[in-house]
Design a binder for these strands. Sequence first.
DNA 1: ATTAGTGTACTAGTTAGATAGTACACTAAT
DNA 2: ATTAGTGTACTATCTAACTAGTACACTAAT
Lengths: 129, 129
Amino acid sequence: MVMDFKPDKPIYQQLIDKVSSEIIRGERNAGDKLPSVREFAVETGVNANTMQRVYREMEQQGIVETKRGQGTFVTEDLERLQKLRTEMKQLYIEAFVQDMSELGFTLDEMVDGLVHYQGEREGKNDYTE
Amino acid sequence: MVMDFKPDKPIYQQLIDKVSSEIIRGERNAGDKLPSVREFAVETGVNANTMQRVYREMEQQGIVETKRGQGTFVTEDLERLQKLRTEMKQLYIEAFVQDMSELGFTLDEMVDGLVHYQGEREGKNDYTE
DNA sequence: ATTAGTGTACTAGTTAGATAGTACACTAAT
DNA sequence: ATTAGTGTACTATCTAACTAGTACACTAAT
């Protein structure tokens, strides 16, 4: 499972986002052990030092807890994880709204664009008027 | 008007986005002359070489036309500009949907988050149910 | 006690982005 | 003709990101 990284954003940031998303989606639960630095580096196709940085930053953000000699674990602080979910959601929405506003789109147009984009993919369209 | 750049994305890319947005919004029209490389570098607070790269890439994308000794102009190809608008819109929507999906959000939740985000700001809420 | 696996902390090197500076060729204004 | 302004093409340097490699300290398994 070598990851496909976008050129616009630093790799370590993309990995933080990815692991955070997995946690929020429930793919990894509070208290779960994450793959070791070396293991995960091989899996994702990056250097171990890069992965080291990912875990270090995630620990600083309180998303994981690392135990020397044992490994790195998802935090058991459910509140922190809930907050992370909210923060990430807010960031994505903010960025989207800002970018679309910069292009001159109104809220209606954003929602419409969103609905039609997804509508094409799933044939489900609850908001069309 | 020194710009505030985000650390996640290369500066030159952010400038391409910004100028493109201005064109799409009608702040700069087809055929308009853009500020010179040096002038614009000072305005935005970057090095002239960085701005040089911005204009070079925008020319490669057909958004501007540069004339040696004269300056850089917004393309007069209206179709190209329309296409740019669509492309940028699509990119932003795609990125947003992908990110939110990665977090486990459904289309409904995306639209809801969008509506409530903007609703808080403008007291206008056309889609709440 | 030894080995395996873990995080951690380096050193060294490469690459992309960004900057500073310079100079040339072209166009327009004086 | 000269000057000013323009894009263009460099050289040199620095920084952040990323890689490769190494070794230490800790924990767990044998």
